[in-house]
Amino acid sequence: MNPVSTAVRGLFRSPPLLTFLLVALVWLVASLTLRGFGAYGHLRYLLELSAVIGIVAAGQTLVIIMGGIDLSVGAIITVTAILLPLISPAADPSGIVGIALALAIATGIGLLNGAGAAYLRVPPIIMTLAMATFLQGLLVMVAGGSAVSVTNASVIWLGQARPLGIPAGVILWIVVAISVLLILHRTPMGSRFLALGANPVAARLSGISITRNTLVLYALSGFFSGVAGILILGMNRQGYVGIGDPYLLTSIAAVVLGGTSILGGRGTYAGTIPGAILLVTTTALITIVNASPGWRSIMFGSLILALLLISGREARR
């Protein structure tokens, strides 16, 4: 067989690589045609935005690989962003205690999602949607309509600092990415997630606990949403109701763009990373086009659909 065609075919079988190449292509073409797009500052800004989606999508990737879905990530982000300024104790100038508390709350919410799915057998799509609705109601009562400003030093550092010229948020994303890739591909737990996603019955009869892994998984998703919420808060300096909403659809889209099967059992975070960058880039390009907000939304929705049709399509039998 022709080695070139074999290589090309291999490429098309690897969705992560394909998505990476698509990102590179879009960046290259946009840099050459649009003034200012290829500037270091602009690309760095795109990566900063991608980091948030990438971190939310870290948990979402794991959940989807196990055959579930987490529709509460947006609400958990909002909860973290609003509660963190309120619960950071003034006695701790570093702000680490506040961060730890907020992450504990986010993880706890995820654990509740997992408990509902594992013990009460509520389908994850219903469990997490109900959780999101519940949290939104709670936040309206706690925060009302007003925004909450953050004074937590660590959070502000995370959102603003650029050690060695690299945004702290991007460094955080790299740490998250390495951890998730290790969990998924180098630990028994990751292998169990994949087995459970592909065939829960066979996995269970092989001694893999559905209950335990479901709990761990949704707790992880809650944790990563919390991390993303803190990052967003640092970048925005304010938390308000609805701040996390845009990240629900984008986190799922990033996962699927990266070639992870929405049906579970197959996928990798390595694809979600370029998936997140691709989404942000697309949004940026749409913003450059001088269109009304309504049209921008329509274009964004259509583009996500088109991108999914190209790269994230379920393999045909």
Partner: peptide, 22 residues
Amino acid sequence: KEGLVLPHSIATNLLMPSLGKL
């Protein structure tokens, strides 16, 4: 339906119960 994870590799299936030991 119950014994194997069909799309996964032979090796992955063979390792499924003993993952925690290795």
